[in-house]
Design a protein around this nucleic acid. Sequence first.
DNA 1: TAGATTGTTAATCGATTAACAATC
DNA 2: TAGATTGTTAATCGATTAACAATC
Lengths: 211, 211
Amino acid sequence: MAKDEHISMSVVRRLPRYYRFLYDLKENGIVRISSRELSQRMGLTASQIRQDLNCFGGFGQQGYGYIVEQLYTEIGHILGVDVLTPTILLGAGNMGHAVANHMDFEQRGIRLISIFDNNPALIGQKIQDVEINPIEKLDEICTENKIEAAILCIPNEVASQVVERLIKLGVRGFWNFSHYDISYNHPGVLVENVHLGDSLMTLSYKLNENR
Amino acid sequence: MAKDEHISMSVVRRLPRYYRFLYDLKENGIVRISSRELSQRMGLTASQIRQDLNCFGGFGQQGYGYIVEQLYTEIGHILGVDVLTPTILLGAGNMGHAVANHMDFEQRGIRLISIFDNNPALIGQKIQDVEINPIEKLDEICTENKIEAAILCIPNEVASQVVERLIKLGVRGFWNFSHYDISYNHPGVLVENVHLGDSLMTLSYKLNENR
DNA sequence: TAGATTGTTAATCGATTAACAATC
DNA sequence: TAGATTGTTAATCGATTAACAATC
């Protein structure tokens, strides 16, 4: 199906949103949709939608539009939801808890194998059926489960050492809630940053600009 | 100081990162920095940095570089950190707790006035000195405190009604952790979305693309 | 067939990078 | 003055939009 070798990140970042909209359409029993109608619902141009969808091969039918179910499945496939990556979560504070509780990992291509924390009070507890283990067990669990990705909900100060250690254990992707600059310090490693502080400051900017 | 009327969002989204780097430089006692050195530390081009900084007036000195302290202050000013916007947080679940505990609001131009939840067990508790109030007090507290912004850590299903109600109460900016499409349904309202699910799927994509 | 809507090429727009004269 | 580094203009690159022939 993959038509083009390279899909630009601008396109990739729109895919999860398409995926959500298509899910809703599907749930509402809508079978087909044209780029024009989808563009109106999503606040995009029809042209952009057709351009985007064409990056990975034509699924539309001329004169008819796109089959919702098929497009949904295909975008999910491209996003990699049907291959579960063994993943661990580091840090079971508020943020770690929130993430572990609400992310529906298995719908998103992630299998959460273990949570780690160094607070003795938390060890042995479970969040959504995933056990919280002491940091001492990190090496053992990573190796045994061929862990490939890690979610960092730990303080900045410890992030640097933890990342170093994880990369040695074979982790090649990070969902990073800390400010530690992984991509810069470890080129080649796959990183998706969630910089909540930056996002909040952007809101501040908008509020101010508009005052 | 504002030289150009319009600063593009691509530039604005880089500002918080400049701000962080400048803070670190400042803390390390570094007084001046050239665009070239900063570019190396941040993994950008020197050209882009000069271009970015020039959007809001020249602060550099030819042949010398930029004064760290001055640049830090100025970017903070542009981001609006020195005007605190009265803000409320809706939803004191794991995510609400995480956000309330870790965001350092006052460093980022936000004053958190009240937290709301409908869980009776939480009412009256405080997070970082901010009280959790029942949703019944929403109108009163918003009006009394001239609330302008709201942080949504509530489930999707209730977001739509809550947003409607808040806009009527004068809220004009949202930090949105839900998937409810505020900007589409309420054009003109300022929105900064945090779509964690989308971000996680982007990581899935990267992990898969690289397999 | 006629109408609709795609896939795709071309045109436009915006953002990034390169180059260099101005100047500290 | 000589060297360094900015501010700014020009060139390039990439992403979005427009247009339209292909075709269901």
